[in-house]
Design a protein around this nucleic acid. Sequence first.
DNA 1: GGTGTGATCTAACCATTGGAAAGATAATCT
DNA 2: AGATTATCTTTCCAATGGTTAGATCACACC
Lengths: 202, 202
Amino acid sequence: MQSQPARRYHHGDLRPALLRAAVEVIGQSGPAAMSLREVARRAGVSHAAAAYHFGDKAGLMTAVAAQGYRMLTEELRSARDTRDGFLEMGVAYVRFAVSHRAHFEVMYRPELYRRDDAEVREARAAAAVLLYGTASPDAGQLAAGAAAWSLVHGLATLWLNGNLPQQLGSDPEEITRLVARYLSTPVNPGAPAQRRRNSYPP
Amino acid sequence: MQSQPARRYHHGDLRPALLRAAVEVIGQSGPAAMSLREVARRAGVSHAAAAYHFGDKAGLMTAVAAQGYRMLTEELRSARDTRDGFLEMGVAYVRFAVSHRAHFEVMYRPELYRRDDAEVREARAAAAVLLYGTASPDAGQLAAGAAAWSLVHGLATLWLNGNLPQQLGSDPEEITRLVARYLSTPVNPGAPAQRRRNSYPP
DNA sequence: GGTGTGATCTAACCATTGGAAAGATAATCT
DNA sequence: AGATTATCTTTCCAATGGTTAGATCACACC
């Protein structure tokens, strides 16, 4: 009847298959729709099989988050080694959020997974080193990194939420380059940042 | 036996009581922990009573989101009418996110509620007018607003997630003023934004 | 004062979920 | 081959969101 591998009792490659299925579900319907049973259904196994491989639902989410941080680190790393590396890292950050929405949404929703998981912590730390430019940033690097990271992170989340005006266009990378122009080193560090009171709002 | 109002069949003020209970639960345990049954328990009614007043779980979340947007609008409005109104609006935005975390988290998680709800749309639009400085922003205002909004929104969410380095301190408002110094009008609009390649990373 | 009509709430039920436990099956080691 | 371990299923449980039928109450109206 069934010409293909048929249904064996042992899947042989179930853990990665479940992970893929989880990312697929989240990408299609959001993290809230990710149920162990739905993921297991897509992989053709019982939901207890998923629980076996990941411990529980949070364990599966933890695996998604860790994978996400590793992927982000990779993207940031190759962006860093370009001309305008600083800007390109910001663009890469937003591109990652949009093109790997499922991972991104899980990563920044700590209540969904176990943030203290060793794998997650390592992957997160590696990404942080790239985002702040060094493993031990001084005060200036810290503030600059926080500003830049906040800008692109806010842009990415607002974009994903549909909270940016449509008039800005439909290309998130382009919007990133546009708003990144508003980021600079403080003209007069220590002094009040905003002098042009009437520049905005009109 | 019971000297107090006892338990009447009709609560008399149930809808607002349920709303308060929902905000309380979300504030304590996050949006994922908000169940109709838990909220109803706190209000001393059956979960069907909550469903009666809000239609369904998404209806209750929708009410939380709408209330949140109205509260945010109010905070932004009073911040606008100060010296350094632009900066103070950013600070107010972050302060709102931290002090009304429950509302904030629901507002920016559209899958939790009905975004097309009339009440939500109005409240959201009112906040947007303040954030962009006008009801019909031109390209410059749009970009500037998106940059500023992205910065404070990213900062707020990263702060709530615990994704900012602890070395930045424990006062989100202070951090807001710090990173806001990196925001300015583009020095050379239209030209590449980043000239100082080596300023960051080191 | 009595009546009835609509609003508000409860009780009971259902399908779905995450998790735990016990057992079945297969791969691997010796 | 036999034993051991890893992997997966079945079965059960408590909790949840949602629906429906019915109970209780408030309030206008006469």
